[in-house]
Design a protein around this nucleic acid. Structure first.
Lengths: 146, 146
DNA sequence: CTTATAATTATTCCTTTTCATACAATAACG
DNA sequence: CGTTATTGTATGAAAAGGAATAATTATAAG
């Protein structure tokens, strides 16, 4: 796409963003084919297997800001995939849960995600994958700490 | 933020996206403090040291789609940081270059980016960093191939 | 040369995100 | 208690992003 010695080629954050973007592109397309947005998918996946997550926690988990999550939840409620309930101990908080339909929908998406991941891991090799996981985990630790 | 064994905790694409998001958050905030958006920064950084890049190539490099880049370029032209010129050999193509002001502006941003990266590499350690770069490079290779 | 197909960028329309703010509930403090 | 601060969520206006398409230029085929 270009030779030379561009700044961005040695820039770590660019490499990270590019790897994430490229690796996710294919599966994100599959999500859209299923009739969901990436934002939908992230919220649904974050809710899988958990009784109730607050809006703020969802924002952290889904790498989005709070208003965006509020609106995504509103959509998912309209689609019948998610429901809100107020927390009894702190009535400011809104606990978000999957509905029965939402749970079934996310199961399908998670199955597709697992298949996609299996193909990626297969292409990369097991050792390379564990090296990647270790490195990414360290990035997260160090970034949060620093 | 939650214990349990959530699906997303073992999901590689989520780990990638999360690492990228967290690692970039601090510097992206610095970009905004300087009066730029992340989109501005990516285009400017992609242009540094290159005579002229087409809109389509910028879209690839900047991990955005083509219309988004067209609009970002329009903004940057208005800010006097970038200029368009038509390619003589193919008049469909638009070659985008940094202006003198744009070059000076991106130099400051790149200096800040280098400092930020130096701090991150320092926190991670040299060996861990090279392991990360190797792993990310492999992800990109394998994803593009597959 | 003409027509058809492909490639490149801009534009349009609609959805989504973002920023700021408002509102409600809790916490802290005198 | 009453008052002020802080926290959690929703809302509204403005900006950005994305999908589809239009417009222009290149290339290929006949």
């Amino acid at each position: 796409m270009q030779g030379g010695d561009r700044f961005i080629d040695g820039y770590l954050l660019y490499l990270l963003a590019r790897a994430s973007s490229i690796a996710s592109a294919e599966f994100h397309q599959e999500i859209r084919r299923c009739g969901y947005t990436v934002a939908h998918w992230r919220v649904l996946a974050a809710l899988k297997g958990i009784d109730g997550v607050t809006v703020g926690d969802l924002a952290d988990i889904c790498l989005a800001n709070q208003p965006a999550i509020s609106k995504t939840i509103e959509k998912l409620v309209g689609m019948g995939l998610v429901e809100r309930s107020s927390d009894d101990t702190d009535r400011r908080r809104v606990r978000v849960c999957l509905t029965r339909d939402g749970d079934a929908a996310v199961d399908l998406l998670i199955a597709a995600a697992r298949e996609h991941q299996a193909r990626l891991v297969d292409a990369m090799g097991h050792d390379e994958t564990t090296a990647l996981v270790r490195a990414l985990t360290r990035v997260i630790e160090r970034s949060v700490a620093g």
